[in-house]
Amino acid sequence: MTDKPLLSVRGLTIDIPVASGTLHAVRGIDFELMKGETLCIVGESGSGKSLTSLALMGLLGGRISRRASRADFDGTDLIAASNRQMRRLRGARMAMIFQEPMTSLNPAYTIGDQLIEALLLHKKVGRAAARDRAVALLEKVGITSAASRLGQYPHQLSGGLRQRVMIAMALMCEPDLLIADEPTTALDVTIQAQILRLLVDLQREMNMAMILITHDLGVVARIADKVAVMYAGELVETGPAADIFNAPTHPYTRGLINCIPVPGKTARGAKLGTIPGIVPSLVGEVTGCPFRTRCSEAVPACRGEIPVRTRHAGRQRILCVHEDGQRAASEVPA
């Protein structure tokens, strides 16, 4: 890996106009990703994870506003880039696997047509060479009788096969960055494990950077180099996966980890941890820590500006008023 990040994001903000005002869906998030690294973005549904990925790919709706002080992909400003520049990047150097392959694949076109389209668009290859590449990638992602699959339509494949087709489609042009938005959500547990193992193997083989969006911390613990914990549009804790799992600091991060059963430690039948309350509305002015209404460590200072704390020589960043994510002993009521 080089010293220069492949992707560098600073202050990414996404606003959505709604009937009652403006929904501040993503609020000033920062992260970096090196070539070959895996960044996992985790958090509850509605925290802004998918919108972040769509903003990077330039796939937000026309009424949705995105801005950033920096959104650099290997020298290209993703915010200032024209539609033509983004079309050259998407599918070629940046690719995305969406949550639900049945709604992402076009039901009116065969698998083969959809696979080779991006390669014909971005690379100077003939149709026969593109077809051979499609067959090779289908075989690589574990689809048997790959050549015969090219003539099939999406509805003729199972959910697991459609997801494998989506992965093959994303890899047709050997992208530098792969964004996987909860790629195993609609699959059964056995297929989920196969798809994740496949993604990790292909990433290592092609030396891609990968952003995996998920709410499954068990998955994150197995494959992430870096973790970004997202809550109510903010990254409340970011850092190396080992640091965050060994010493989770933000109360929300600790709450998520406490919800996971630990083999050999969690007794059979024991109650798992929970996070009380609901995610607050992000419509209108948002001040203070959005997690304070659900946080057992909340203090009056949580209503004001929240500082960014750092640990491990700046590798781990925490958005919290408490130095170590917990109240000092003198602040805890008797």
Rank of each mutant, 00 (worst) to 15 (best):
Q114P: 00
A71P: 06
R254D: 04
R292K: 11
G142A: 12
E234W: 02
G48H: 08
K140R: 15
R87A: 11
P300M: 04
L33I: 14
A92C: 13
F291A: 02
P290V: 08
I41Y: 04
S82I: 08
R294P: 06
L33F: 08
I318H: 06
A224T: 03
E174S: 14
V236F: 12
C259R: 05
M208Q: 13
F245T: 08
H215S: 11
V42N: 11
D72T: 09
C259V: 08
A25L: 04
A313C: 09
F291G: 06
L178M: 05
I97E: 04
T266R: 09
Q85T: 15
T185Y: 10
E37Q: 15
A186C: 11
E44N: 14
E117I: 00
T287Q: 11
Q114S: 03
M230Y: 10
V18R: 00
E297Q: 15
P17L: 10
T214A: 05
L137W: 02
V135C: 03
L115M: 08
A95F: 01
L51Y: 07
V262L: 08
E182G: 01
R10H: 00
R164G: 05
P154S: 13
E323P: 05
R63F: 12
C302P: 01
R254W: 03
A68V: 09
L187V: 13
I211L: 09
D176L: 00
P290Q: 13
R70E: 14
I79S: 05
A129E: 15
S104M: 01
G75K: 05
P248Q: 11
R149E: 09
S8D: 09
L23G: 01
